[in-house]
Design a protein around this nucleic acid. Structure first.
Length: 221
DNA sequence: ATTTGATCATGT
DNA sequence: ACATGATCAAAT
């Protein structure tokens, strides 16, 4: 699909999908929907990327580079509550990575997001799940401060060899969790003595309480 | 191996 | 019931 020329155009186009089922969207794109998400977890996001004209592929840049906008689907239940945490990006695990919050992937990716809620309770068959009303979001100063605080805390632990201490419960709004093919995937990280060690790759995720707050601001739930 | 798209599914 | 830790596929 064509690239949107402005954020307004992008939002407008995304909103035309509100109320459609995933089967209907798949038909618009002449795409064969998988029976479920067991082996195709990212398929909904990819479908919307295609429809809205996002850059394809897995490049480490915003979905709409010219607009600086990141597209995120958000599974919600019938009450408008988020069903899952939201993946943001992988975490730099080696020394010499990004130091400043302003330059971090988390900050950049979350600076401007097109959220597309999907009514996606697990009992609803994939084709029958319904696309919600998309909205653009930029973090408020308070939200930004929360994100920054968590990010700085987690990065401090990562860079000082205390990765082993980190669990998903760390952080108010942002958490660090495994992000890899499986529990045997490895990447280089900082060991307890500052030495390079192999460790499970991690990613940053937004906790559901945070995305719930974003939805509430928009009049969902 | 890494980053993208995320959700699954078990343990608490 | 829910979050944490585990996992799946494609593109690069």
């Amino acid at each position: 699909m064509n690239k949107p020329a402005s954020s307004a155009e992008l939002l407008c186009k995304a909103r035309t999908l509100a109320g459609l089922t995933l089967a209907e969207l798949a038909e618009l794109l002449d795409y064969q929907l998988p029976p479920n998400l067991l082996k195709d977890k990212g398929t909904i996001g990819q479908l919307l990327e295609r429809y809205l004209g996002a850059s394809a592929g897995s490049k480490a840049e915003p979905d709409f580079p010219e607009l600086g906008i990141e597209l995120k689907t958000l599974p919600i239940d019938a009450l408008g509550q988020p069903l899952e945490s939201t993946y943001v990006c992988v975490a730099p695990m080696q020394l010499g990575g990004i130091q400043r919050w302003q330059d971090s992937w988390v900050c950049q990716k979350l600076s401007h997001v097109l959220w597309i809620p999907i009514l996606a309770s697990r009992h609803i068959p994939l084709p029958e799940r319904i696309i919600g009303r998309a909205f653009l979001w930029q973090p408020s100063a308070a939200q930004q401060a929360l994100l920054r605080q968590d990010w700085e805390e987690l990065m401090e632990l990562l860079m000082t060899g205390r990765l082993a201490e980190i669990r998903g419960a760390h952080g108010e709004v942002l958490q660090l969790r495994p992000k890899g093919a499986n529990s045997k995937a490895v990447t280089t990280a900082v060991g307890s003595e500052g030495q390079p060690v192999l460790a499970l790759p991690r990613g940053f995720y937004l906790k559901t309480a945070f995305t719930r707050q974003i939805l509430q601001e928009q009049g969902y739930c």
